[in-house]
């Protein structure tokens, strides 16, 4: 097996340590970091993504592969940057978090993994995130999408506040805002003027693919 195949397999296995080790090796051996990502990591995550869609892989498989992929990117991306190349192979950038006053994060974590698996760069802020923090991070990384999660009927309002804040700051046109979480719905998304809502993580990825392709 060559190094790319090994990287691919380590991502499929969800073996974070092995991916990190192989990525370091790629850097040490002077292998093209772009190829290591494209021919190794991405190929692996594609296999797992397909298997998940077919119902053959389960959530822990996808999430661990996403974690492994992230570990590889953390090592290879700085090398790509050194070569003066941007992240042209990234489908899009998404900043995600659970809104202020809400500490539930399982759904958001699953969504983050699905986006990573689909080739997006994910910036996860965590839980109980203020409106300003979402927007600050989105500006800092040049995000395409801000994804706000809420599990309580009492905290959903935080999603609306993000959109209001963006309008106040004259930034509404810069970011797409996705909302999700148990008590949310398409009609809620319409009501607050969000760009996207999905009930499940994979639907959210498909939605992002469609919207960003426009």
């Amino acid at each position: 097996m060559n190094l790319y195949d090994e990287l691919k397999q380590a991502v499929i296995d969800g073996d974070e340590d092995m991916v990190a080790e192989l990525s370091e090796k790629a850097v040490a051996e002077g292998t093209s970091p772009v190829d290591a990502v494209q021919e190794g990591l991405v190929k692996g995550i594609e296999v797992i993504g397909e298997a998940w869609k077919a119902g053959e892989a389960f959530l822990p498989d996808v999430m661990m592969s996403a974690e492994a992929m992230k570990a590889g990117l953390a090592i290879l991306e700085p090398e790509i940057a050194k070569l003066g190349m941007g992240d042209g192979n990234v489908k899009g950038k998404i900043v995600i978090g659970t809104v202020e006053g809400d500490i539930h994060d399982i759904g958001k974590n699953i969504m983050g993994a699905m986006f990573t698996a689909a080739g997006y760069k994910v910036f996860d802020l965590g839980t109980d995130i203020k409106v300003e923090e979402f927007v600050k991070k989105a500006r800092e990384v040049g995000a395409d999408i801000i994804g706000a999660s809420a599990l309580l009927t009492t905290t959903m309002i935080g999603q609306k506040q993000i959109i209001q804040y963006l309008k106040e700051q004259n930034l509404r046109g810069q970011f797409r805002v996705f909302v999700g979480g148990g008590p949310t719905s398409q009609s809620w998304a319409n009501e607050i003027g969000a760009d996207g809502w999905a009930e499940t993580a994979d639907e959210a990825v498909e939605l992002a693919n469609r919207i960003l392709a426009r």
């Binding site: 998940w52 119902g55 389960f58 959530l59 399982i106």
Partner: peptide
């Protein structure tokens, strides 16, 4: 339990 396909 969390359904191991959807997480729900």
């Amino acid at each position: 339990l969390s359904d191991m396909h959807s997480g729900s």
